[in-house]
């Protein structure tokens, strides 16, 4: 099970990182730097989690995932506040230049990662049975389908992604 959790963690972090990097592309300078930093860190951590035999820096990653989810929650609260004062609201669906829907998608992936990381931290270095080949492949395919679904939908909700969807028209 530990192998499967580590793989899902890697996939989730990779998906969240890609969404953050895509959101950064159309963000205001201040948010851009933060999003690039967070996105790059998530992609690097995700690849390391996939490639290594143990989850890298589980406690720091757990703190980071929780902080990211809290950050998105704060953004959504700000957005709700902005919607109640239309005069201060930034372009549709954004707060300080950051689109809310893709951030929510990334937060969903981070929330899943945080839950899995909590299990990893709780279990410590306890050994667990390795999955069989077909169980492993099934687990990877299922995890990839979920991550690709959330990531694609989130990318489609970024300003540039929304333009792409309209341009395709199908």
């Amino acid at each position: 099970m530990a192998t499967m959790i580590r793989t899902w963690l890697g996939l989730g972090a990779l998906g969240a990182g890609l969404v953050h990097l895509a959101v950064a592309a159309g963000s205001a300078p201040g948010a851009l730097a933060l999003l690039v930093l967070v996105g790059a860190a998530e992609v690097a951590w995700g690849v390391t989690a996939l490639a290594r035999e143990r989850v890298p820096l589980p406690r720091i990653a757990l703190a980071g995932a929780v902080a990211a989810v809290v950050g998105v929650a704060a953004v959504l609260v700000l957005r709700a506040g902005a919607m109640s004062h239309m005069a201060t609201m930034t372009p549709a669906g954004t707060v300080a230049g950051v689109p809310a829907v893709p951030m929510l998608g990334a937060a969903l992936l981070e929330l899943g990662c945080a839950a899995a990381l909590a299990v990893v931290v709780r279990r410590g270095r306890r050994e667990s049975r390795r999955p069989g080949v077909w169980a492993y492949l099934g687990g990877v395919v299922a995890g990839a389908a979920v991550v690709a679904g959330i990531t694609s939908a989130s990318l489609g909700a970024t300003p540039v992604g929304a333009m792409a969807m309209q341009g395709m028209g199908h």
Binding site: G10, L14, V47, L50, V140, A144, A145, A148, S152
Partner: peptide, 20 residues
């Protein structure tokens, strides 16, 4: 759009198994 979804899903499966 379905192409993008399929490419992304293929990418994460291939990378996860290839690396892991």
């Amino acid at each position: 759009t379905p192409d993008h979804f399929l490419h992304l899903a293929s990418a994460v499966v291939l990378l996860a198994v290839g690396l892991g």
